[in-house]
């Protein structure tokens, strides 16, 4: 170099980058993706590819032609949103609805606030909730598990675990099936074991910390456990709560979204406990059978407040041992 470079310290960098983190999240989602491909076959593939492609395309178009700024679709954040959106959809959803969901997720929930890092609500969840409210029938008709099926729109449908709980129409599947994912539901939410593998990977790579998933799952287990202990007839067992619906997906991938979760460990606990409580409340007494999405979005709304009031443990605040 001709001239020496001058810059303030530090002069070295960890080499960490946004795209590395996003790629890490995508890798962590692969087990769940493979599980969904196995359980839902062609439908899962079509929905996931459509959602990812649509999210990336909308991000590209908005960045290039509306914001006229730098294009950053390769950082992986749009792809993560796409996969997460797909994970929240049934595998027999028509393509045009997925595209509408992607537009709301990227266009409304993310780019209109200023793009990556500025969105107050999790884009994939906003897209999903928008679809759920707009097309309640399509969004709550879940295909039953049919390994490696080639059916897409005409897949056979059935009720989810939480639907059964709400309606009381049939008997619950075995916990073992819920853990593996052999139950009807959204693409990514069914296989708890695959999601937990993803969590282990993200913790190992230090992409996220354990606070949010653990606090959510712990709260749900405790709260549902108390209800179950009071009246096992009316309320479902905590195990059913833990392994059914979108709880695992929400706790591991949606609530831990960097942008919309609190910045401190204490804040993360408050956030996680809040999500856990709201989830069980909505599931048990709400109109919808499933409440994770709403719970996360509500707590997303509280995140700035949590960040304002909850400060990290400062150095020198701990009482000193004599």
């Amino acid at each position: 170099m001709e001239k020496l470079i001058i810059s303030p310290a530090p002069h070295i960098h960890s080499g960490d980058s946004v795209s590395k983190n996003m790629t890490g999240v995508i890798i962590a989602m692969i087990p769940a993706l493979l599980a969904s491909l196995y359980f839902f076959g062609l439908g899962a593939l079509i929905v996931t590819l459509t959602a990812v492609a649509a999210c990336m395309l909308f991000e590209l178009l908005i960045q290039k032609y509306i914001l006229k700024g730098p294009v950053t679709i390769l950082d992986g954040s749009a792809a993560v949103t796409g996969i997460l959106l797909a994970f929240n959809l049934p595998s027999n959803l028509p393509i045009w609805m997925i595209i509408v969901g992607a537009l709301v997720a990227i266009g409304v929930a993310k780019m209109s606030f200023g793009g990556l890092g500025n969105n107050p609500f999790n884009p994939a969840l906003v897209g999903r909730v928008f679809l759920l409210i707009s097309f309640p029938v399509d969004m709550t008709t879940w295909p039953v598990v049919a390994p490696l099926t080639m059916n897409y729109l005409d897949a056979e449908t059935g009720a989810t675990v939480l639907g059964i709980l709400k309606e009381g129409s049939a008997s619950l599947p075995a916990i073992k099936d819920m853990v593996i994912g052999n139950i009807p539901g959204s693409i990514g939410e069914v296989s708890a074991i695959a999601l937990l593998i993803g969590l282990a990977y993200m913790l190992f790579r230090k992409i996220i910390t354990w606070h949010i998933p653990v606090s959510i799952l712990l709260t749900v287990a405790l709260f549902a456990g108390i209800l179950y202990a009071v009246d096992p007839e009316t309320y479902a067992s905590p195990l059913v709560h833990l392994f059914s619906g979108g709880l695992m997906l929400g706790a591991i991938f949606m609530a831990t979204d960097y942008v919309t979760s609190p910045m401190t460990f204490r804040g993360m606990w408050i956030y996680g406990v809040g999500i856990g409580l709201l989830t069980v409340i909505i599931r048990t007494w709400g109109a919808y059978p499933e409440g994770v999405s709403f719970a996360i979005l509500i707590m997303n709304g509280f995140t700035p407040l949590i960040n304002f009031y909850v400060k990290p443990k400062r150095f020198g605040e701990k009482p000193n041992k004599a």
């Binding site: 170099m1 470079i5 810059s7 002069h11 070295i12 960098h13 960490d16 980058s17 946004v18 983190n21 950053t72 950082d75 954040s77 200023g114 793009g115 990556l116 890092g117 500025n118 910390t209 960097y258 942008v259 919309t260 979760s261 609190p262 910045m263 401190t264 460990f265 400060k311 990290p312 443990k313 400062r314 150095f315 605040e317």
Partner: peptide
């Protein structure tokens, strides 16, 4: 330091990943 280590990489938006809060040895934000 080598050339390639010397130049800072382009600045991107804060993604609020909490890593800076986590590593701060004084417990600041």
């Amino acid at each position: 330091l080598r050339d390639e280590e010397s130049i800072r990489k382009p600045v991107q938006n804060c993604i609020r990943c909490t890593k800076c809060v986590t590593v701060c040895p004084m417990g600041l934000e």
